[in-house]
């Protein structure tokens, strides 16, 4: 069964460490390792002794049409080794072009040319970092005209061609489905079985009629329903609650963790009762051992 964890944030570091368990895993943003202070890096490097750790990035800008930054990837690789993570995840997006960094995940023009570029970059990343890459769907507020592929098609094709996995952000999916009027369940149904290796869940807000991805509210019921749908078709390793602000109400995050665990446990019982037995995933070395420890 997947572990249920939270995205690590320094502002809530002590709260998070004290809350293992019920928190079963932690997702670290590799850019916090690279840019953080000594004290922050030391705190992050101590986390694998506490619970399984997963690695996520925001600074790669996979869709930018220049070679991925190899120095950055070497730093990712070094931190991945120290943290003993099984894979590395990043966004199917771009944030910068040479000389300009908006620090905001932006949607890609979904053309075959851009798909080629992304696939080349994914292969470079997997080779350089030495780990599988998971591609995350982002929330977006505009689309480029003249798409040749829809979002699910683009994501699935990029993963099929490179062997990358999917990190499905069900809150981003819910937001996009509101803002662009499509069926999020249909999106989930188009993802190849067992391609989703991880999920993100979060809570956002509204700006007029626009749903916004702010990571500062509890996970809404509609997002939890999407989680149920995803768990019916996939066997992710981990489910991560992303909360970036409002840590004085950490109880809300722990409430989210418990709610997700209940959905996970129900989904696991359903799978055990009705589905044919699936071959167990080969444990990833120490990750398998840590997963067993967390389930005690």
């Amino acid at each position: 069964m997947p572990l249920v964890g939270v995205g690590y944030r320094h502002e809530a570091g002590a709260l998070i460490q004290r809350s293992v368990p019920p928190i079963e895993a932690v997702e670290i943003t590799v850019d916090h390792c690279i840019k953080g202070t000594r004290a922050q890096r030391e705190a992050l490097e101590a986390l694998p002794d506490l619970c399984p750790v997963f690695l996520h990035g925001v600074g790669l800008s996979l869709g930018t049409a220049v070679e991925p930054d190899r120095e950055y990837l070497d730093q990712v690789r070094d931190h991945a080794r120290r943290l003993r993570v099984p894979w590395y995840s990043e966004h199917l997006a771009f944030t910068k072009v040479p000389g300009l960094d908006l620090a905001q995940l932006l949607p890609l023009p979904r053309t075959r040319e851009v798909l080629e570029i992304v696939c080349e970059h994914v292969e470079v990343v997997q080779e350089r970092v030495g780990l599988p890459l998971l591609l995350e769907n982002i929330s977006y507020y505009f689309e480029f005209p003249d798409h040749q592929l829809d979002e699910a098609e683009f994501l699935v094709e990029a993963c099929r061609r490179t062997g990358a996995g999917i990190l499905l952000d069900v809150e981003n999916l819910r937001i996009n489905s509101i803002n662009f009027g499509f069926d999020p369940l249909a999106f989930i149904a188009r993802l190849p079985p067992r391609s989703v290796r991880a999920l993100h869940l979060a809570g956002g807000c509204r700006d007029g009629e626009l749903a916004i991805d702010t990571h500062d509210h509890p996970v809404p019921p509609a997002t939890l329903r999407l989680l149920e749908a995803a768990l019916a078709a996939h066997q992710p390793d981990v489910l991560i609650v992303e909360r970036d602000q409002g840590f004085s109400t950490f109880e809300e995050t722990l409430t989210d963790v418990e709610a997700i665990k209940q959905i996970r446990d129900r989904s696991g019982e359903g799978a055990a009762a009705g589905a044919p037995a699936r071959a167990a995933r080969a444990p990833g070395g120490s990750r398998g051992v840590r997963a067993q420890r967390a389930s005690r």
Partner: peptide, 18 residues
């Protein structure tokens, strides 16, 4: 492209930067 949404996005990006 929806100009209103682009302006909203611009506002969000600027707020984060500030």
């Amino acid at each position: 492209m929806d100009g209103g949404r682009l302006r909203t996005l611009g506002r969000l990006i600027l707020a984060k930067r500030l």
